[in-house]
Amino acid sequence: MTNDITEHMRSAWAGKEPVLLGRGGIHNAAVMIALVKNGEDYDVLFEKRAEDLDRQPGEICFPGGAMEPGETPEEAAVRETMEELLVRREQIRVIAPLNEMVTISGDDIFSFLAVIDDYEGTFSGDEVGEVFRVPLSWLLAQEPLGADVEQTTIPSEDFPYDRIPGGRNYPWRSSHRTIWFYRWEKDGRIYDIWGFTAHMLRAFLKRCHSEIPGANQ
């Protein structure tokens, strides 16, 4: 049996439907968890968003973005990866669908696993400020920091209180969730991977631990 971890991933996951880890909803975004060969091992590729973007500037993410009309989630993930990393389609080897997750705002995000062959560190400066790589073996050995947050419903000023029992005294429920953090340090630089990117990364790593031979070594 091959010792290449991506072959074990393909055997375990290829052909399976994405695992729904949320409420479901409109399928409107897709990302790629991209692996890059590093000797006998693999690195996970991350992007740091450009600082001049209107949305989430400077934050760390995976390649990906909104789906266009008529696209499948996989097609969207591949297209966005090509555009953001300036790679050719033939460089991207999609291994398997991973998870379908739902954000706080109710958006559905699909994730896919792929290997990018012959990647030379290219990226589009229109969207990406920099790229960096983290060894998969290192990530598999980490226990992320978890921080709990409480979310409370705050109605708008024009909320129709007269239409709900109790009016302004309605007992809105609070919800609790955990935000995960991974910290990678290299050459004096610190990269904090957090939020939904860390949530997807943690789900991927947990599946590796539970389903991929040798991932716990």
Rank of each mutant, 00 (worst) to 15 (best):
D118H: 13
S124P: 09
I116W: 00
V102K: 10
I154R: 00
A114P: 15
E143K: 13
P155H: 00
G106V: 10
L139Q: 09
I109A: 06
M101T: 14
L145W: 08
P135E: 05
D108G: 15
W138C: 10
S137H: 12
E157L: 09
P155R: 01
I116P: 01
E130C: 08
N99S: 10
D148A: 13
P155L: 03
T103Y: 03
N99G: 04
D108C: 15
D107I: 15
S111Q: 08
E150A: 09
T153W: 10
P135N: 07
A147H: 07
E150N: 05
F110W: 15
G146K: 14
N99V: 11
V149W: 05
F123S: 03
I104Y: 06
V115S: 04
G129C: 09
E157R: 11
P135W: 01
D118P: 06
P135S: 07
P160H: 01
Y161K: 01
G106K: 11
I154N: 06
Q142A: 04
E157A: 13
P160T: 03
Y161P: 03
Y119W: 10
F123N: 05
D117V: 01
I154P: 01
D158W: 02
Q151T: 13
G106S: 04
G121L: 02
S137Q: 14
W138Y: 14
V149C: 05
D126K: 11
E100R: 13
E143H: 07
L145T: 14
L140S: 00
S137P: 09
T153R: 10
F110A: 14
I109S: 09
E157F: 06
L136S: 05
V102A: 07
F110V: 10
L145P: 00
E157H: 09
T153M: 13
S111H: 09
S124N: 14
G146E: 07
S124R: 12
F159E: 00
L136R: 04
P135T: 06
L139C: 06
V115W: 04
G121W: 01
S111W: 09
S105Q: 15
R133T: 10
L145Y: 12
V115L: 06
S111I: 05
R133Y: 10
G146T: 05
S111M: 07
E130A: 13
E157T: 08
V149H: 13
A147Q: 11
D158N: 10
S137T: 15
T122P: 00
T153L: 12
A147L: 12
A147K: 12
T152K: 13
Y161R: 00
F112S: 11
E127M: 11
I109Q: 09
S111G: 08
T122Y: 00
F123M: 04
E157Y: 04
E150D: 04
V102P: 06
P135F: 01
D158V: 07
N99Y: 07
S156M: 06
T152F: 12
Y161A: 02
D117K: 09
T122E: 03
D158R: 04
D158Y: 03
F110R: 13
E120G: 03
Y161Q: 03
L136W: 05
P135Y: 03
A114I: 13
